[in-house]
């Protein structure tokens, strides 16, 4: 497959057709937040600018009666408004938080899938090493099978497409991210963090894996290509190099 320029394949950031369920779910939660944000911030800005326009100083206008004077610390206002606003915001947050926690549970807990592919991901200055169950190693590229709907759970010899990553670091603090899948997890020396995904379409995605924590002079170049293969071709590759 020829390497296409990345953005031609994927469009501009934010407009990507989802490559994986994780990205799809993330996108829908993000949309929910955007809608809430636009409504709330929109209402606030409308009121703000309306007041600014309506109460601007008119030519020849007098100061209001309670205009500030030196040493006068007048007070006014209705405390009930604060209570109402608090209640409104809490109810809004309640909805957002429930959705957030649901997605978090999905992203955090790999499915109990006997046909999952487990890969150790080790960040180092500066690159990513991928170690497969059969000890096959890759540096700078990451091969995974796309989803295989015909793979029966529990039957040996096929991968379902679930990929579970055990992420750690060999030296400093890195952060492993696949923006297309909306997957990210810190790679911390001495700890193993898990992440997982299912890829829904095969293809070659150059430099789709990046480091998201400053890790020295090579931080910008700490990338890996993502190669999503059909189950059969992944199987062939997996067995070929041992």
């Amino acid at each position: 497959m020829p390497l296409k320029p990345f953005y031609e394949e994927r469009g501009l950031p934010g407009l990507v057709p989802a490559l994986a369920p994780s990205a799809e779910q993330w996108q829908s939660l993000f949309t929910l937040y955007i809608i809430a944000a636009v409504i709330v911030a929109g209402a606030v800005f409308v009121m703000f600018f309306y007041f600014l326009a309506k109460y601007r100083k008119k030519p020849g206008a007098q100061d209001p009666k309670d205009a500030p004077r030196v040493g006068v610390m007048a007070d006014r206002g209705n405390p009930a408004l604060a209570a109402i606003l608090t209640a409104l915001l809490i109810s809004l947050f309640f909805g957002l938080t429930l959705n957030t926690f649901a997605l978090n549970a999905y992203l955090q807990n790999p499915p109990n899938d006997p046909n999952a592919l487990y890969v150790d991901v080790i960040g180092f200055q500066w690159g990513w090493r991928f170690v497969y169950p059969n000890a096959r190693e890759l540096i700078g590229e990451f091969r995974v099978p796309e989803i295989n709907r015909t793979c029966t759970p529990g039957v040996r010899g096929c991968w379902s497409g679930t990929v579970i990553l055990n992420i750690t670091s060999a030296d400093v603090f890195h952060s492993f991210g696949i923006p297309d899948f909306k997957i990210k997890r810190d790679a911390i020396p001495g700890r193993v963090n898990q992440a997982w995904f299912v890829a829904e379409q095969s293809g070659i995605f150059p430099e789709a894996i990046r480091c998201y924590e400053l890790c020295g002079t090579g931080h910008a170049l700490m990338m890996a290509d993502l190669i999503i293969q059909s189950p059969d071709s992944f199987h062939d590759w997996y067995l070929s190099g041992v």
Binding site: L29, A37, F93, T97, F101, N104, S175, G177, K184, Y212
Partner: peptide, 27 residues
């Protein structure tokens, strides 16, 4: 200042989400 702070505050609510952070962290 107030207008810009409102925008910053609203994006802060996005950052409070432990799930959305899978995309935002370190970007």
């Amino acid at each position: 200042s107030l207008g810009l702070f409102i925008i910053g505050g609203v994006t802060g609510v996005f950052n409070s989400s432990v799930a959305l952070d899978t995309a935002f962290r370190g970007t």
